[in-house]
Nucleic acid binder design. Structure first.
Length: 272
DNA sequence: CCCCAGGTCGTCA
DNA sequence: TGACGACATGGG
C-alpha cells in the first residue's frame, strides 16, 4: 500500500467522465482501475490517495503519472479564465477534473469502438476484448484482464474479432492494427500531422482522432467536438459552423481541457 | 417494435 | 463542401 498527495483531484469526476472505460466503483466507495500493466484500487481521504495494487513496483510514479498529479491545473484554469470570464463558473463545477494519462494503443482501439455506440456497450466490448486477448491479473482474489498489447492482437483475424461483438467496427480495428507502425511518427508531429495520420485509418474520423490524441497522447490542445459541445456552442455563442476554429482561437494551447470542461458540465447536467 | 448511442463511410448533388 | 442513409449490436 502507498499514499500519495491527492492535490486537488476529484477521482470520481475524473474516472467517470467518459474518458476512461476500465474503472469500477466498489461497494466500499473505493475505485478499482485497470491500468496498462496492473490493477489498482484507490481509496481517498481529504489529503491522500491510498493505493493498493497487484504490482507495487514503482507504484507511486505510475499513479502520479496516470492521474497527472504533477501538472499545474491552477495555471491552466487561470489561463482559461483570463481568456474567457465564463470559465469562472465552469471551473467551479468541474474542479478536480483531470485528463488522465492513458495508454495510447488502448485509446486508439477503445475510441474506434466508441463510435456510434453507448458507454455501457463500449465498456462491455473492451472487457471482452481484454478477456480474450489480454493478460490475466489476480488482485484481491479477483480476476482482471489487462487491455491487450499490440503484440497480443496484431495477427487477429476478422473472424476472431467477430466473437468480440464489435459490430461493423471490427474491420476498423483491423485496419488500425495494420497501420500501427505508422503511428510511431505521431510523437514527432504537430497536431495537424498527428490528426492526419490517425484519420488515415478507416473508421477514424476527426472526433475519434481527437479523443485518441487528447486521452492517449496528452495533446491538451486537441479537442473532440461532439453533439453535446455542438449544442452548447449553438446555445451560448450562436455559433453553428467552424466550431473548431472558433475554439482554437479562444483557448489554445489548452483547448482540449476547455472543451472537456464544457462537455463534462453538460453531461453532468443531463445525468441529474 | 422503435429509438438511440461521445461517428464515419460512401455516394450523390 | 454539404447533406443523407447505412452500419452491427444491445439497452431503454
Amino acid at each position: 500500500m502507498i499514499k500519495v498527495d491527492k492535490k486537488d483531484i476529484n477521482l470520481k469526476e475524473s474516472l467517470f467522465s467518459g474518458q476512461c472505460f476500465r474503472m469500477y466503483q466498489e461497494d466500499d466507495g473505493t475505485f478499482t482501475v485497470v491500468l496498462n500493466d496492473r490493477v489498482i484500487n484507490v481509496q481517498e481521504d481529504n489529503k491522500y490517495l491510498i493505493i493498493k495494487s497487484d504490482n507495487e513496483d514503482n507504484l507511486k510514479n505510475v499513479v502520479t503519472n496516470y492521474f497527472d498529479l504533477d501538472r499545474d491545473y491552477d495555471e491552466i484554469n487561470n489561463y482559461l479564465i483570463k481568456k474567457d470570464k465564463s470559465f469562472e463558473e465552469i471551473i467551479k463545477k468541474v474542479k478536480g477534473y483531470k485528463i488522465l494519462k492513458q495508454d495510447s494503443f488502448e485509446m486508439l482501439i477503445s475510441y474506434i469502438i466508441s463510435q456510434n455506440n453507448n458507454v455501457k456497450r463500449i465498456m462491455k466490448s473492451i472487457e471482452k476484448l481484454s478477456e480474450l486477448y489480454g493478460s490475466e491479473i489476480i488482485f484481491n482474489d479477483k480476476k482482471y484482464y489487462l487491455f491487450p498489447k499490440y503484440e497480443q492482437i496484431k495477427n487477429i483475424t476478422l473472424e476472431e474479432l467477430r466473437n468480440v461483438g464489435l459490430g461493423f467496427r471490427d474491420k476498423y480495428v483491423l485496419d488500425a492494427l495494420k497501420k500501427y507502425n505508422k503511428l510511431k511518427e505521431i510523437d514527432s508531429l504537430n497536431t495537424d500531422g498527428a490528426i492526419e495520420i490517425l484519420m488515415s485509418i478507416k473508421g477514424v474520423g476527426l472526433k475519434v482522432a481527437s479523443c485518441i490524441l487528447l486521452f492517449g497522447y496528452q495533446r491538451l490542445d486537441v479537442f473532440p467536438i461532439d453533439t453535446w459541445v455542438k449544442k452548447y456552442t449553438r446555445e451560448k455563442y450562436n455559433v453553428y459552423k467552424k466550431i473548431d476554429e472558433f475554439y482554437k482561437e479562444k483557448y489554445n494551447p489548452y483547448t482540449g481541457v476547455a472543451i472537456q470542461y464544457i462537455f463534462h458540465v453538460k453531461r453532468n447536467k443531463k445525468n441529474n
